[in-house]
Design a protein around this nucleic acid. Sequence first.
DNA 1: GTCTATAAAGCGATAGAC
DNA 2: GTCTATCGCTTTATAGAC
Lengths: 188, 188
Amino acid sequence: MPRTLLERPDAVRALASVFRRRGFESSSLSVIQQEAGIGRGSLYHFFPDGKTDMARAVLDQVSDWFEDEVFVPLRSATDAAEAVSAMTKAVADYFVSRENVCLFAAMTLGEEKETFAAEVKAYFVDWVDALAALLQRGGLTPEDAHENALDAVAMIQGGLIITRAYGDESTFLGVMERVERRLLAQLS
Amino acid sequence: MPRTLLERPDAVRALASVFRRRGFESSSLSVIQQEAGIGRGSLYHFFPDGKTDMARAVLDQVSDWFEDEVFVPLRSATDAAEAVSAMTKAVADYFVSRENVCLFAAMTLGEEKETFAAEVKAYFVDWVDALAALLQRGGLTPEDAHENALDAVAMIQGGLIITRAYGDESTFLGVMERVERRLLAQLS
DNA sequence: GTCTATAAAGCGATAGAC
DNA sequence: GTCTATCGCTTTATAGAC
């Protein structure tokens, strides 16, 4: 008899957690089976093309979250300062609750980097461009807006790396505070 | 007869190049053998404990380079502004000539992250602390110095990620320019 | 939709000749 | 110091019962 009946989105969430904790390449199917609590049969039922399919589904889910919770709010905001604060808060909460790992950043290294190069590029382009457009609406020149947006996203991503190296979550929160402060300073 | 007689440092350099291009976990011994041009027998002669030994040797070599070319100059500098410019130039040249990959950052994810956690932490602590001490000598408060140092290293590391995602080297050079400019602005 | 058993390939590591 | 052959194990993926 089946252990548990699963919805695909639940499976994707469980996979994402395993990939964040162990990395994509060292998450073997045996490990995934154990740590996600999903049998091999179910995995290949939901993801017929195997591990690559699982990675794609996970990246899609992360991408959807950022689209809804970060990029759309940035694009539709009228108050630039308010939108900057909302973004830094949403992003800080997101990564703190997800092992301080950005799966798109992880995909810029290793085996699967060519496979997902287009998706990874789109993620960062969408983020930087949405933030840059907001900063421009807040009064910055196109060049300043783009540079400040790119630097902010870079600082967030680098902050995740250093936070994992330090093993100290407050490091990331400090970085996020200063990202917010620096962006707000540009708007005033 | 032996194909080529190799010195260990040459082998380490070749390994580093393979690890940067393919990542540690997807560099199988067959791949290493082919791309580094070192036979299996030689690899286990130089690195008796296998892949972990190879990774340790590569990280040690990177660490030595940063110690000599970045950390020591930062610690011994008297002119803070000059030292900031020297650091950003050295670091920019280094990563541009090495596939825009920081192997220590790569080791914050995946299989071997526990194995090298201490070395990885030491690398980032040494870098941030050496830069913070310099900024403090340049007139910043201890708190401001440490925050600005950490943010600079984070921006560099995040800049590498976005540069790989964009597939465009000039992105990294732009980030490095602005890291330099921001640090110099603090010193004036 | 989930299970177990198994196939085929690749893995890291070792041994022993040269 | 380098080579090749090989061991034992794990890997991804598949097949077929339930």
